[in-house]
Each structure stands twice: as structure tokens, then as C-alpha cells.
């Protein structure tokens, strides 16, 4: 790895996701960081550094879509991959039409994730 590999940020309030996902990302060869809330992510300033965002939809406080809006407002355009445990097709379509790269239902396969990441980066 000569060039710095892309940074992928994971924002999910679920601990197990925060535990497991970064490792997988590392295995994919990306750098990864995790945040427990959208607010944490924003305050971290990672929005400017990161290359891609893996975002949980349902979170207490600022939700995933809220974060998406906020980033847009801030003109920090990041490719976003939504992950959600809530199977709602309407929501998925809405998210996609709003500019999300992908919206994956939990549990998702690693290959799906990989594909989405490839699209984003």
C-alpha cells in the first residue's frame, strides 16, 4: 500500500456493527473509523477527511437521512451507503433518490458491501 487507501466512516448506534464492520473494511483494504452517532461524526470533523460514509438509518437523535441532509447543506458531498435493519422499500427508494449510493438491509453479505463500496469510491 503505497497510496493512502480511502477512508470509510461508519456511523451506527449499534455496538456490534461498530465492532464488526471496520474490521471487514480493513480486510477489504480500506481504512475505517466508526462513530456511535451522527453528531459524533459531525463534531469529529471526519466529514472532510473521509471518502465514504456507511450510515445507519435509524438512530436516536440525528438519523441517517438527517445526516445526509446536513452534509448536503454543508456542501460536504460524500458518497453514502445506508445500512438499515428496517426493510422498507419506500424508504430505500427515497434514500437512493436523495443521492445515496446504496441502501443495504441488515444482514448484508460482504460481497454486497464490497460492490457498494466500489461504486462509491
Amino acid at each position: 500500500m503505497n497510496k493512502e487507501s480511502p477512508l470509510v466512516s461508519v456511523v451506527d448506534d449499534d455496538e456490534s456493527v461498530r465492532e464488526s464492520l471496520p474490521d471487514l473494511l480493513k480486510e477489504f483494504g480500506y481504512r475505517a473509523e466508526a462513530f456511535s452517532s451522527a453528531e459524533d461524526f459531525l463534531t469529529s470533523g471526519s466529514a472532510t477527511r473521509t471518502n465514504c460514509l456507511i450510515l445507519d438509518v435509524a438512530m436516536p437523535g440525528m438519523s441517517g437521512p438527517d445526516l445526509q441532509l446536513e452534509l448536503r447543506r454543508r456542501k460536504q458531498l460524500l458518497p453514502i451507503i445506508f445500512i438499515t435493519a428496517h426493510r422498507d422499500e419506500a424508504v430505500r427508494i427515497r434514500l437512493l433518490s436523495n443521492g445515496a449510493i446504496e441502501c443495504l438491509y441488515k444482514p448484508f453479505s460482504d460481497s454486497d458491501l464490497q460492490k457498494a463500496l466500489a461504486k462509491a469510491l
Binding site: D14, S16, V17, L21, E27, A85, R87, F108
Partner: peptide, 20 residues
């Protein structure tokens, strides 16, 4: 689903990671 999916997702992710 949400509740279960969370650990399930973790399981799958972790398993995938494990394999890799």
C-alpha cells in the same frame, strides 16, 4: 427484525471478517 438483524448483521460481518 431490527433487533435480530443487528446481531445477525454483526454475525455475518464478523464471520466474513473471520474468513478473510
Amino acid at each position: 427484525a431490527h433487533e435480530v438483524n443487528q446481531p445477525l448483521s454483526g454475525i455475518i460481518t464478523n464471520a466474513s471478517t473471520c474468513l478473510r
